[in-house]
C-alpha cells in the first residue's frame, strides 16, 4: 500500500537541479525512522544476534571461561556426541514432548469445546483454568513436589483414602517423566484453552446451521465442522507445544535434578550440567548449537504452516 508519506524512491524529481537534493531528501525521509529503530537494533544486536553467532564460535573453542580460549576444532562436538548421556538426554526430551502431547494436547481442546458450549459460568471456568498460568514456575514445582510426596503427600493420601496403592510419582524412573509432564501441563494449558476458545468463536454460525438442517447430530457437527475448522490452530499449537516442552528447565531442575537414575535428564539440563557443574563450556555450547539447529527446523515448520494458513485466510 502506498501512503502519502511514502512516495516511491525511484520516482523522478522533475524540478531537481542539484545533485545534493536527492541525498537530503533521502536523509529527511529516513533519519527519524532509523533513529527510532536504534534502541531495538542495539538491544537485539547485543543480546540476541551477537550471542547467536557467538554461540557457534564458542562451540569450537576450548576453555573459554577460565583461561585464554583456544581453537578446539570439532573436539567439543566429538565429546558431546560420544557422551552416553547425549542420547539419554535426547530420548528424555523426546519422551517429554511425546508425553506432553499424550497428556496435555487433547485436554485443552476438549476443555475449550466444553466451556464454549456451557451456558453458565463461562467466565468462571475460563478464569479457573487459566489461573495456574500466572503462578511462578518455581512455586508450581515445589507445590507439586509437596503433593507428590510419597508418604503423606496429598495425592497418595487421597489414594489411600480410597484404598488405592500409593504411587511413586517422581521417585521412579518409569513415572518421573510423566509426573513432570503433569506439572507442566497443569501450569501451561490455560493459555491454550483460551486460544482454542477464541478459535471456536471464530467458526461461522451458518456452518452449524447448515449442518443441523442436513440432519447432522452434535457429534457429527464436532467431527465435521468444529475440528476441521480448528485444524490450522491445532497444528500450530502442536508445534508450539513441542518446541516449548523441549525448553522446559525449571520443573525438572527443581523437582528431580535429572533423576531418578537419569530418567529426567533432558537436553537443557545436560547443557546446564556441562556448563555449570563440570565447567565445560565448550561442550555446553556445542550441545546448544545442536539443540538450536533442531529447534530452528521445528520453528521453520511452524512458520511455514502459519504462512500457508495465512495465505488461505481472510486477508
Amino acid at each position: 500500500m502506498v501512503t502519502l508519506d511514502q512516495p516511491a524512491l525511484s520516482q523522478a524529481e522533475p524540478r531537481t537541479t542539484s545533485r545534493v537534493q536527492p541525498l537530503l531528501r533521502f536523509a529527511r525521509r529516513n533519519t527519524a525512522g532509523i533513529l527510532f529503530l536504534l534502541p531495538a537494533l542495539g538491544i537485539f544486536g547485543f543480546f540476541v544476534w551477537y550471542p547467536v553467532v557467538y554461540g557457534f564460535i564458542l562451540s569450537f573453542q576450548k576453555n573459554a571461561f577460565y583461561g585464554v580460549p583456544t581453537f578446539a576444532g570439532w573436539s567439543n562436538y566429538r565429546f558431546v556426541l560420544h557422551d552416553p548421556l547425549f542420547w539419554t538426554a535426547w530420548r528424555n526430551s523426546a519422551s517429554y514432548a511425546l508425553y506432553g502431547l499424550l497428556i496435555g494436547y487433547l485436554i485443552p481442546i476438549v476443555l475449550a469445546i466444553a466451556i464454549n458450549e456451557i451456558r453458565h459460568g463461562t467466565g468462571y471456568f475460563r478464569l479457573a483454568f487459566y489461573l495456574p498460568v500466572i503462578i511462578p514456575p518455581l512455586v508450581t514445582a515445589f507445590l507439586w513436589r509437596y503433593m507428590y510426596t510419597h508418604d503423606g503427600g496429598l495425592i497418595n493420601s487421597l489414594l489411600s483414602v480410597v484404598h488405592a496403592a500409593p504411587q511413586p510419582w517422581l521417585q521412579s524412573p518409569s513415572t518421573a517423566l510423566p509426573s513432570l509432564v503433569i506439572v507442566t501441563t497443569w501450569a501451561n494449558m490455560g493459555g491454550t484453552v483460551l486460544i482454542y476458545m477464541a478459535a471456536l468463536q471464530g467458526i461461522p454460525a451458518q456452518l452449524y446451521e447448515a449442518a443441523e438442517l442436513d440432519g447432522a447430530n452434535i457429534w457429527r457437527r464436532i467431527w465435521n465442522i468444529t475440528l476441521p475448522q480448528m485444524r490450522g490452530i491445532m497444528l500450530i499449537l502442536l508445534l508450539i507445544q513441542i518446541i516449548a516442552t523441549v525448553q522446559v528447565f525449571t520443573e525438572p531442575f527443581t523437582l528431580t535434578g535429572g533423576g531418578p537414575d537419569l530418567s529426567t535428564m533432558t537436553v537443557i539440563l545436560l547443557i546446564y550440567n556441562y556448563a555449570f557443574n563440570s565447567g565445560n563450556f565448550g561442550a555446553a555450547s556445542a550441545l546448544s548449537v545442536i539443540l538450536f539447529l533442531v529447534l530452528v527446523v521445528l520453528s521453520l515448520i511452524y512458520f511455514g504452516i502459519t504462512r500457508r494458513l495465512n495465505l488461505g485466510g481472510a486477508e
Partner: peptide
C-alpha cells in the same frame, strides 16, 4: 529471533 529459542543461546 522468534524462531531462535532463548535457551539455545543461554551460554553465549
Amino acid at each position: 529471533t522468534l524462531m531462535v529459542p532463548a535457551i539455545a543461546y543461554l551460554i553465549p
